[in-house]
């Protein structure tokens, strides 16, 4: 859990750096997000006059729910102490709770921007969440479990092999991950242009330590999705339960390598593509939904063959 917290800002900084280099800019240091967070934590909070208790409680809830969800994803070893308390479906639902509070916080002040952000966010979520659940269905049917540790262990075993459904699920999961993390074709994390922002519009009124909480929560979410994709679709060198220090060390190195590759690919993708109009997003996510459904359907039908 602590590892996730420490690595998340680094990953965000790394993705930003790679993006900047690809655009032939120097870019800020990879450690810049840590400095931003520390600065935000030290600053005082400027709260809007009509902010309610919900507005003040939401950042902490968002942060903890995302963090608990991230703690359920195996990073470099599969045998985790608390992996049995919740499965993949619960993980998605935890992220959904975090989003629920974020959307409510966006509406709390009663400004136009907060509303526009929340409204678009729930629209995106209403498509991304089922797509994600269908991906989970596919995985659960392949692995015979919705328990993430078991899924990862099963995927690492040699009996899985190549499957069409898994390919479809991977593509769908990547699309959902891009949408959920407010990355480029769906939302732009670095914009403050009114008409294009979704995530940023909701957190517009936040400042100081509250903003720091939300920023680190979104970093953790990005890390969560990349490690999820890593542990399910590239499960090699995950240390099995009860492995020695050596296996753990190899697993950790492999995990860092996976994060680096994932972050690099994300930055590549972001520089290569333009942002979509908001009403093109449903088509993008609809495709993810259909891919997920197709993957599940293939598995359901192929059981008898």
């Amino acid at each position: 859990m602590a590892l996730v917290l420490l690595l998340a800002p680094l990953l965000t900084g790394y993705v930003r750096k790679v993006r900047a280099r690809l655009l032939r800019r120097r870019g800020a240091s990879v450690f810049q997000p840590y400095r931003d967070l520390l600065r935000l934590l030290r600053k005082e909070v400027v709260l809007a006059e009509n902010a309610s208790w919900l507005f003040r409680a939401a950042p902490y809830l968002i942060f903890t729910m995302t963090w608990v969800a991230a703690a359920l994803v195996p990073t470099f070893a599969t045998g985790m102490i608390f992996s049995w308390i919740a499965d993949l479906i619960a993980l998605i639902a935890l992220l959904a709770s975090a989003r629920f509070f974020l959307a409510l916080a966006g509406m709390d002040i009663g400004t136009g921007f907060g509303g526009i952000g929340s409204s678009r966010e729930v629209m995106i979520a209403s498509l991304a969440e089922p797509a994600m659940l269908l991906v989970v269905f596919t995985l659960a049917l392949v692995a015979g479990s919705t328990q993430l540790s078991f899924v990862a262990a099963h995927m690492a075993s040699p009996e899985v092999g190549l499957r069409v459904s898994l390919g479809l699920a991977l593509v769908a999961l990547i699309m959902v991950g891009i949408a959920e993390n407010a990355r480029v074709p769906v939302d732009n994390p670095s914009t403050h242009l009114e008409l294009t922002m979704v995530h940023e519009a909701m957190v517009l009124e936040y400042s100081g330590r509250h903003l720091a909480m939300i920023e680190i929560a979104s970093s953790i979410k990005l890390l969560l999705y990349i490690s999820l994709i890593g542990c399910i679709f590239v499960p090699w060198s995950l240390a099995p339960a009860g492995a020695g220090w050596q296996a753990m060390g190899i697993g950790l190195l492999a995990y860092l390598a996976k994060l680096a590759v994932g972050g690099f690919l994300l930055a590549m993708f972001e520089t290569a593509i333009a942002k979509m109009r908001v009403f093109r997003v449903p088509e993008f996510l609809g495709a993810a939904l259909m891919l997920g459904l197709l993957g599940t359907l293939l598995l359901f039908v192929s059981r008898s063959l």
């Binding site: 030290r42 005082e44 809007a48 517009l204 009124e205």
Partner: peptide, 25 residues
């Protein structure tokens, strides 16, 4: 975790708070 985070941040970072008009860009 939420309670610990709130405690930690209010203890070690800042707990200053100021009310102002909404920013709204």
């Amino acid at each position: 975790t939420a309670a610990l985070t709130i405690y930690g941040i209010h203890r070690f970072a800042s707990r200053a708070l100021r009310r102002g008009p909404a920013w709204d860009c």
